[in-house]
């Protein structure tokens, strides 16, 4: 088949995806869903600007075909807000710490952090760096980003994530 139809949930909205088979999840999200917070940065799976969560796991949306994820749930960084519509906790920590400069890597950073923060493990700063190492940033030297994630993990302590997750 050259065209595939699948149902994909994006940030809680179930959508029908009728896209050409070769369309990456990245292009489908940007061109068909309007999820422009998902960025193209390299197409190689190296930079992480296109990261989204699929069923809670961070993936390179440039290295997944939209056709491959029938029935699954995608969360982009825009889906990490608080239930009341404001910034979620990770997002707020990024704001407080000045972790977004040019902002191009920010969405991917947030979803990657959301995955491991959601696991509720207490991580030291080196472990945070380890978990984030697949997301490249050229502006911050990662300092404010690691600070922000560190803040959230400290607030959380070693207890499990709140109901409703980390966002």
């Amino acid at each position: 088949m050259t065209d595939a139809t699948s149902r994909i949930t994006v940030n809680g909205r179930e959508l029908e995806c009728r896209a050409a088979a070769h369309l990456s999840l990245l292009r489908w999200l940007r061109d068909h869903v309007g999820a422009l917070e998902v960025k193209y940065g390299c197409g190689e799976g190296v930079c992480g600007a296109c990261a989204v969560l699929i069923d809670g796991q961070a993936v390179n949306s440039c290295l997944v075909l939209a056709a491959q994820i029938d029935g699954r749930a995608v969360t982009t960084s825009a889906g990490l807000g608080s239930p009341s519509g404001g910034l979620g906790r990770l997002q707020q920590a990024f704001l407080d710490r000045g972790a977004a400069q040019c902002g191009f890597c920010t969405g991917g950073m947030l979803v990657t952090a959301a995955e491991f923060a959601g696991a509720g493990e207490a991580l030291d700063r080196r472990s945070i760096r380890d978990a984030l190492h697949g997301n490249l940033c050229r502006c911050t030297g990662y300092q404010a980003i690691v600070d922000a994630v560190d803040d959230v993990l400290r607030d959380q302590g070693s207890s499990s994530p709140p109901a409703g997750g980390w966002t």
Binding site: A78, Q91, L95, A100, G103, T106
Partner: peptide
Amino acid sequence: PLPRTDAAEKIAGSTRYAADLA
């Protein structure tokens, strides 16, 4: 050390960069 006025939108994902216009 005020959060920059552009930061909240970048973090929320609503900033429209050069490639984002159609």
